[in-house]
Amino acid sequence: MVRLQTDQLHIGYGDKLIVKDLTLQIPDGEITSIIGSNGCGKSTLLKGMARIIPHQSGIVVLDGVSISKQDTKSLAKKLAILPQTPESAAGLTVGELVSYGRFPHQSGLGRLTKDDVEIIQWAMSVTGTFPFQYTPVDALSGGQRQRVWIAMALAQETDIIFLDEPTTYLDMAHQLEVLELLQKLNEEQQRTIVMVLHDLNQAARFSNHLIAMKDGRIVQSGTAEKVIQKHILQEVFQIDAEIGRDPRTNKPMCITYNLLKGDNQNVEKNASIPALAGSYA
């Protein structure tokens, strides 16, 4: 089943076209990760599909209707997006921030109803942030803050959640914590998760569906087995990768890689990466 898709989508900034003639389908109820080198259009695509930025031509369709024809509140009840570096007002508590997720469902004076409060408390409980409800968001660790933002998205009660590099600036343990939470939300609540990731091995491990991009276009999409392949990584990242298997998930993983010769020939030739750390190409 597909609820969200694009057709011949073009997105740019001014005269510069970033996403070019892009047609894709997002599998419903699965985790999709978008991978690619810096500047390839990953974040732009995510923002375009969420109507954060306008598209120049083409169409984004959600539930059979163009998102450009859906009013803001209706769209916000279906789709939530967490930017790469979300910021909250200084001194805002965890409970206050999570309560903002109820905005699309409020009317009149915007006061929280009993149902709103129950949903907010549930979102904090699911994400393990309930003990921090009266704590200022600024006082939390990076991993805790990410869980609070995810709680806000859950309080929004959308079936689809977009996340732009949710593990950026987090250490390995907190990265795993956030990704396991997203996996749990997907498996237990059938949330459709779409995220931009830089770590190839994390993308392969936690995703049902991958989209590999280069220069605003899709090079390959599908399962990890279909996308994490030597020739695909060569085209997308300009690396000569050695592909193995994750001993815990049996999914493909990038064990090590060399930079391809050419423009990068003055850079150190060999770049090995620990299996657990993943690839940050």
Score class of each variant (00 low, 15 high):
residue 233 L to S: 03
residue 240 D to P: 04
residue 250 N to W: 09
residue 240 D to Y: 03
residue 258 N to F: 06
residue 267 V to W: 01
residue 252 P to L: 07
residue 238 Q to V: 12
residue 266 N to S: 13
residue 259 L to G: 02
residue 252 P to N: 11
residue 250 N to F: 13
residue 258 N to R: 12
residue 245 R to S: 11
residue 267 V to K: 09
residue 234 Q to S: 08
residue 235 E to W: 07
residue 242 E to F: 06
residue 247 P to M: 04
residue 248 R to C: 15
residue 246 D to C: 15
residue 261 K to E: 12
residue 263 D to W: 09
residue 248 R to P: 15
residue 264 N to Q: 08
residue 250 N to D: 09
residue 249 T to S: 11
residue 236 V to E: 00
residue 233 L to D: 01
residue 244 G to I: 10
residue 260 L to H: 03
residue 250 N to V: 13
residue 259 L to Y: 02
residue 256 T to A: 10
residue 255 I to K: 02
residue 251 K to V: 12
residue 250 N to I: 14
residue 261 K to F: 08
residue 255 I to N: 00
residue 245 R to Y: 03
residue 243 I to Q: 06
residue 252 P to V: 14
residue 268 E to S: 15
residue 253 M to I: 15
residue 239 I to D: 00
residue 245 R to F: 08
residue 252 P to M: 11
residue 264 N to H: 09
residue 256 T to L: 05
residue 237 F to I: 02
residue 238 Q to F: 08
residue 260 L to T: 06
residue 260 L to P: 05
residue 255 I to L: 01
residue 239 I to N: 00
residue 265 Q to R: 13
residue 247 P to A: 04
residue 244 G to R: 07
residue 260 L to M: 09
residue 258 N to K: 10
residue 254 C to S: 08
residue 235 E to D: 12
residue 239 I to Q: 00
residue 254 C to K: 05
residue 259 L to K: 04
residue 237 F to W: 01
residue 257 Y to K: 02
residue 243 I to K: 11
residue 247 P to L: 06
residue 247 P to V: 11
residue 255 I to G: 01
residue 261 K to H: 08
residue 267 V to L: 05
residue 245 R to T: 12
residue 268 E to F: 12
residue 265 Q to I: 14
residue 237 F to H: 02
residue 235 E to L: 12
residue 254 C to Q: 05
residue 254 C to W: 01
residue 263 D to A: 15
residue 243 I to L: 08
residue 267 V to G: 04
residue 249 T to N: 05
residue 267 V to I: 14
residue 252 P to G: 10
residue 248 R to F: 14
residue 238 Q to M: 11
residue 233 L to T: 05
residue 234 Q to P: 07
residue 237 F to T: 02
residue 233 L to H: 01
residue 257 Y to T: 03
residue 269 K to W: 02
residue 268 E to I: 15
residue 245 R to E: 04
residue 241 A to I: 13
residue 259 L to P: 02
residue 260 L to D: 03
residue 249 T to P: 10
residue 253 M to N: 07
residue 244 G to C: 06
residue 269 K to Q: 07
residue 260 L to S: 06
residue 268 E to R: 14
residue 263 D to T: 15
residue 232 I to V: 14
residue 267 V to S: 10
residue 241 A to Q: 06
residue 238 Q to L: 10
residue 262 G to D: 01
residue 234 Q to A: 06
residue 252 P to A: 11
residue 266 N to M: 09
residue 248 R to H: 15
residue 249 T to D: 05
residue 265 Q to S: 13
residue 235 E to F: 13
residue 233 L to K: 03
residue 263 D to Q: 13
residue 236 V to Q: 00
residue 244 G to Y: 01
residue 244 G to A: 11
residue 250 N to A: 11
residue 261 K to T: 14
residue 253 M to Y: 04
residue 240 D to T: 09
residue 264 N to A: 09
residue 265 Q to W: 08
residue 244 G to S: 05
residue 233 L to A: 04
residue 268 E to T: 15
residue 255 I to S: 00
residue 255 I to P: 00
residue 257 Y to H: 02
residue 250 N to L: 09
residue 250 N to K: 13
residue 243 I to W: 08
residue 236 V to I: 01
residue 243 I to P: 10
residue 267 V to E: 01
residue 248 R to Q: 15
